[in-house]
Design a protein around this nucleic acid. Structure first.
Length: 336
DNA sequence: TTTAGGG
DNA sequence: CCCTAAA
């Protein structure tokens, strides 16, 4: 994975693999373990043999992972409003497929096939330009990757589960989510939610963060079984993965508490869900969780036991540190 | 429009 | 998560 796919246009292989050091993680966490990167190693042969293939569609991501400086043609090429639009473009499509057992939903989506395209023609320019220049010139932070995902990229097999994943179409997830959604076919909250994808700039951060600590337990996400439709209380609930929490904490460390929109825009650009408000809520919960840890041991144990995600120690530690640094209104006391 | 606070 | 008030 050292050379991987070089920049498409210029074949700049002179860039050293060490160039992926993300400026984001510079301050808070020193223990950076690349996690996602490991998932793309399988594609190497393809890259060498079928060069045209990756150009066609779904192989650009790994490349971009490697080269964040490689903002070559991809950024513009995929901005094409026609086929572009990263994740949320497939919302209706995806949901219809997954929920096809629900006749109503299916008909609904199919009906609105055409108009949806039209709507997609909005101009991303303003924000896009802003972000683009911002990243490029600013500090050259860690976010240089322009994902520009296409329709279906079924690459990136991070866990063996995904291998037997029927894939094909539902692999439009950003990158951190949807690890094992194979068994369930109910998935009520594919990603619909109330429309709020906002401007999805096609940059994604892909920081080689940890995710190494608890091995997998973060990939759980929607591991819930086959929830009967009757019993689903909350329409949509997305489990926070460790990766997400890590990103959130890191983002807070970088931009400060309260800058939810910034954090969302810089670190959660790929997540159509997770609004800034969600981030804030999660942070609130994190504060509580981290404080809980220091309460009674018994309580803590029970919590840990009950919790699906152990919430790594490192994260808790960081949360607490951050909590000390910037006082978050009202949550600091952890009273009542 | 975003953030803070409460439900 | 959702909603609302305030900035």
């Amino acid at each position: 994975m050292d050379y991987g796919p070089p920049c498409w246009g210029s074949l700049t292989r002179n860039v050293s693999p060490a160039s992926q050091s993300p400026g984001l993680s510079g301050s808070s966490n020193s223990a950076v373990g690349m996690s996602e990167s490991s998932s793309v190693t399988i594609q190497e042969s393809d890259f060498k043999n079928d060069y045209s293939l990756l150009k066609s569609e779904n192989h650009e991501l790994p490349a971009l992972k490697y080269r964040r400086r490689c903002e070559k043609p991809v950024s513009l090429e995929f901005r094409n409003p026609n086929l572009s639009d990263e994740d949320d473009d497939e919302d209706p499509l995806l949901s219809s497929m997954l929920l096809n057992k629900n006749g109503r939903k299916l008909g609904d989506t199919s009906k609105s096939g055409a108009p949806r395209r039209e709507k997609r023609l909005r101009k991303p320019t303003q924000r896009y330009i802003e972000e683009f220049s911002d990243k490029k010139s600013k500090h050259l932070k860690g976010q240089g990757k322009f994902s520009a995902v296409t329709k279906n990229r079924q690459l990136k097999i991070r866990s063996p589960d995904e291998l037997h994943l029927v894939t094909g179409t539902l692999s439009s997830v950003p990158e951190e989510e949807l690890p094992s959604e194979t068994t369930i076919q109910v998935v009520p909250e594919v990603r619909a939610r109330r429309g709020r994808p906002k401007k999805q700039v096609s940059v994604l951060v892909t920081k080689p963060k940890e995710e190494v600590f608890t091995s997998d337990s973060d990939d759980d996400r929607v591991k819930k079984k086959k929830r009967s439709e009757k019993h689903d209380r909350r329409k949509h609930q997305r489990m926070w993965t460790i990766t997400e929490v890590t990103k959130l904490v890191d983002g807070i460390a970088e931009y400060g508490v309260g800058r939810w929109t910034d954090i969302k825009r810089f670190l959660f650009t790929t997540s159509v869900y997770r609004t800034p408000i969600d981030l804030r809520d999660k942070w609130r919960n994190l504060l509580r969780a981290s404080s809980v840890q220091k309460l009674k041991k018994k309580e803590a144990e029970e919590k840990q036991l009950h919790a699906l995600r152990p919430l790594p120690k490192s994260l808790i530690r960081r949360v607490r540190e951050l909590a000390k640094i910037h006082p978050y209104p009202r949550e600091r006391g952890q009273k009542s």
